[in-house]
Simulated assay, not measured.
Amino acid sequence: MVQKIAIIGGGIVGSTAAYYLSQDEYANFEVSMFDEGIGQATKAAAGIISPWLSKRRNKKWFRLASDGAELVAKIAQETKMNDDAYANNGTIITRKNKESLDELYKIALEREKSNPQMGSVQYISKDEIKNLIPIIKNSPYDGLFVPGGSRIDGNLYCQHLLNIAMKRNLSIYKGKVKLINDNQILYKGKIFTFDKIILATGAWSKEILANLKINLNLRPQKGQLIELRIANNEFINKMPVMMPESEYDFIPVGREKLIIGATHDNDQGFDLKHEKSVDIALVKTANNLINNVKANDIILSKVGTRAYTDDFSPFLGMIPGHPSLFIGTGLGSSGLTTGPIVSKLIVDLIKNKKIDLNQYQKPISTYIN
């Protein structure tokens, strides 16, 4: 019997869910994706997958993020994702003083035991950082090198997985939808009925569930990043990404392209306006590490909206009292790391597989009322 599944939202949660639902074990599924594509965090995201040295005390989040990092690497390998979308080149994390660096190293040694994907973390000097990332001229601090760290381009990642799914059982519809009830969606004046619906709508999840009188503990956060064209003959392949203390992330992509960002703005709601003042702040980070970067070196500035909960924790699962509705949201700035595993867990739930969500999150009722 054919099962009809709808996915609302084409970001990292939606695209990964579509990919998993296109596997052979779901051959009897018809999957429809509805995606408006406005303000989507993933399309504006290029980031770093390296959660292992986070000092967040939330053990459930850390389990989700570390398992997510492992899953992203697996997906990249099994789908033959190219280096533009995902590259495991390592991460450098710097600290201003030796005491902070030593503290971070102790965390690394402890977490290496249960997270082999992070690799063997090593101290790295300022000069060694310059050798690994030759475009850097002004590395002010020593750091740690995490071999398992990776960079990811959210838009390219999603498109890669959607291309695979569309060859199998996925149809994509562009535009805004309205959720009528647990099983029906209004799209361009027509009502479509499904067996299950996955809400992968990020910060817009509150809006789409309002018609069903379901309220979420969720708020939007604006993020902006820039891509710079740096005319520098010292660009090399496989440069690590860097997370400098007190600066924005530094992500060399190769072929003279450098990404800086992204910002975190909690006060602008769903405003997607590009801000030149933010570009200037991001260019300043670049100039603190390499010389003579100017605003006219910006080739692209991206703006997106992330979804956050009050305790900064993602949540997923079946919406209580609505057995046909599934949701995954609240990913915040870790979305490129946690989004894929959130998707896989949702798909497992749809297939009635036994999984223990308690290891990853508080009860979903914490975030829904």
Rank of each mutant, 00 (worst) to 15 (best):
K284F: 04
N296Y: 09
K302W: 02
D127K: 10
Y187N: 00
K126E: 07
Y86Q: 11
K59W: 08
R151T: 15
S54P: 09
S32E: 02
A85P: 05
L179D: 07
L325W: 10
Y173G: 03
N138Q: 09
I92F: 03
K98P: 04
P140M: 09
I280V: 15
R63M: 10
G223K: 10
L336R: 03
I346Q: 08
T329A: 11
I236N: 15
Q77D: 11
N138T: 05
I191S: 14
Q359V: 14
I172Q: 00
I214G: 06
L109I: 03
D24W: 11
P244K: 00
T337V: 14
H274Y: 09
K190Y: 15
V278G: 04
E227P: 04
Q184Y: 09
L289G: 05
I259S: 06
G90I: 05
F312W: 11
Q221F: 07
D348V: 10
T42A: 03
K80I: 11
I280A: 15
A85M: 03
N163F: 12
I198V: 12
T309V: 01
Y248W: 10
Y123G: 02
D310S: 13
A17L: 01
V121D: 00
A69K: 02
Q40E: 07
N89Q: 08
A76D: 05
L170G: 01
Q184P: 12
E30R: 08
P320H: 06
I191W: 10
I280P: 13
S205L: 03
Y105R: 00
I364C: 07
S171G: 09
A203I: 03
R56A: 14
F145N: 05
